[in-house]
Design a protein around this nucleic acid. Sequence first.
DNA 1: GAGGTGTCCTAG
DNA 2: TCAGCTAGGACACCTC
Length: 868
Amino acid sequence: MGSAIWTDDLCIVSGDNRSWGDSNTVVELWCRSKQGHSTLLLVNGMRPYIEISPKDNGCSGTEEEIKQVLEISTVIDIQPPVIKWTSQGEAPHWRVLVRDTTVVSRLRERLRADWRVTSADIQFHKRLMLDLDLGPHIRAKGQILYASDGAPEEVRKLSPESEDALENILEIGGRGLYPVDIVMSCNAEDLETCEPFQTPFVTLSIDLETSIATNNILCAAVVIDRAGERTEHVYRGDERTEILEPICQLVREQDPDIITGYNIDNFDLPRILDRTEALAKKDERVDLFGWGRVPLDEKSRRIIPNRGQNRTWNISGRVPMDAWWQVRQTLRPERESLRFVSALIWPEDEDRRKLDVDSSRMDEEWASRPEEVIRYCLRDTHLPLDILQHLQSVQQKEALAAVARTSFSTAAIETTSQWIDSLVIRLADRENVAVPTTRQGRRGEQIAGGYVHEVEPGLRSWVAVLDFKSMYPSIMISNNICSTTLVDSEFHEDMEDDLVSPSTGTRYRSHKNRPGLVPRLLSDLMAQRDQYKAEARKARNEGNEQAAFLNERLQFAVKILMNSFYGVFASAFYRFTHKDIGASITEWARHNIRSIISDLGNDGYDVVYSDTDSIFVRTRGLDNAPIDKPDESEDSFAIWSQARSETISFGRRLAERYSKEGAELEFETAMSAFFSHGAKKRYVGRVVWPREEMLIRGYEVRRTDSFRLLTTTMTMLFEHILQGKQESAVDRTRKVIDRVRAGDIDIADLVISRSCKGKWNKRESKWDFSVYKNEDGLPYVRAAKQRIERGLGFTPGMKVGYVVSNANSSPMQVSAWLTDELGEEPPAYDAEYYAKRLATALGRITEAFGWSEKELLQGSRQQSLFDF
DNA sequence: GAGGTGTCCTAG
DNA sequence: TCAGCTAGGACACCTC
């Protein structure tokens, strides 16, 4: 081969590895370049390994024992031992180099009998990122093996003839001609991290319209988004030759990094797989669903997308990002149909949510007006792209990848423990700390969590709210909490400067003695976040909006990442966890907050409420100040204003008094009024600083399984209460209850919606709700069954809307809410049920002022007689 | 009707 | 949802 060397800045989309030759492994990194070209890196020069160390009642590491391991046929070599830190003391660790990645899991299980096995369950492309200390954005130098017509001119000039290309790729362990713009061969040392940038990813969105009678695909639309530029593609006709095969070709030509759609995980992708299996013999299926970013080869299992037990699909080299899932996670809408969500995001835009096609009668619609169906299908293909754009999902995941130093794919579709692994393992390796495998097995006793202060029912005036900044991370930093600093009395002596948890006495080594890995990572992240914040501010001041957004996303990603640490370390199965770690973090938290509460109590202050890391304290001496903001012309305005500034300075004083090194108490808000009916995690506040707003927590208003009439009535009630107008609040509440009884209500305001689980039973071709102990005892499951019967889609975990039509029978009768999707008449509702539910929920609140639920139900008329 | 169980959803 | 955590409120349903 010639010296066709090329250097490029790339973002790693996803990775995999392949064993080749006698004993080689090549890592495949699918990337998108800063300039927009798709590039596959084939990286050679790394050998898979696992590590072994002595085990009680097993091998101790004698020369003879090591020799025996070396004799195992899949073991290539063993490196001289390195002393590594383990939870049971320091021990020699031998790195066992293995033939290739295919033999790792069997060898691991075999060696486990006699050895402690570590660093033995890390995917090889992740291992490469860890060992080379790479993040997602890299500068790669390598030899051009192949360049398609889509590659830049200068790269094509470096590319060998195409016959040679295939041969060259195979020669270094590649699978064949990958469907990408550029294939490069690199050595491990040719890769390095570069500055994060915003990658011009290519996204493909797809939507199918299918027959209800036969499950066939009637038509499909695909929209490709190339850094904002969209192209549309429509398919109809023969399912195989005019729909699936051309779509497959399009995927391979256009080579998207991200696959999206609305509900693709549970609908479009499974349906395409089903139809592929029905239409084509095994060896022909690659032509229909060979979407993987690997060469067309019917023998490769990786070319056809698959889904194991996971929620998300595995599409080699690409990242499925279901717009439905993104919406759920970030917007938490009350209902999740594409129609409802479009209306939520673009309330002004009628076109985006018009119902031109009745999807429950798709076969008739397709027969009578196919053009409308296609138009509708095409619109629903654009919408997921609009949604991802609106939510900034892709950019946010890329920022997370940058700060967690993972591939885009790990940030976008893998789990929190994978993000933490990426940071912790690379530090552990650098510091010779052994990396245990993920624990399996049952979860034991639950650890105790945060402290929640009892709250008295009623209205309180002038309250300062304070909370600890990043409480759990701060506790982990200041007490040096880490599995590497935990003192296990079985293996370690106590030391004088150990940090000891307040009640159970869990001990950690001092920072001076042995700085923990996790505390160091966390304080680095805190500093990094401050830096991104500063850079965002600077960029904004300089008018550089793009840099401001980038830094804003990065600082937010750091926040998400920092907050994930506690949960992962408190989990039962994480590789670096110990049950005492999670328990002692929360123990310190409870101790800190309770001592402040009791201190304030001793000083005569009234602590109104507290939850985990927050404290609500009344300002003294303001009992007569008005809570409702008077008009500036009124005399009382000065009193209100004075009360506000006193509360602010009180809050600031408290923050100062109780902040200490590593536990910063921040003054968060000032409230002129605080109300709770006496239940923890449920309160309302009238915030007067730093903004003026009403803050509601926990109440039905916040819940997606409430109904809109309850939400709006309760909001009204709170507004009145916080203005001190209880009487008129009660009267208006009664009127609403009257209207429900009289049928003078928009039924859409009575829809209740809850998530419903379910599994597709392939054998019987129907949805299975047996995850529930008593499936028919749950209203939302009954509603889901009605939906399915009507030919509407169901996906596991989706929210199912319904209206209660008769609550006198047990179980109550419900009618699924199909109006969003089918535009049909709303069902009849049980007026007494809704009147009662309103009265119960609102009565809990009015009870605090002496109006019971019963009184609310009595109706507004008698009350009105007295009023007027 | 009280009390227990199962389930969802939220606060932090 | 083979992998972040606990505390807590509320509702429907079932049993006695």
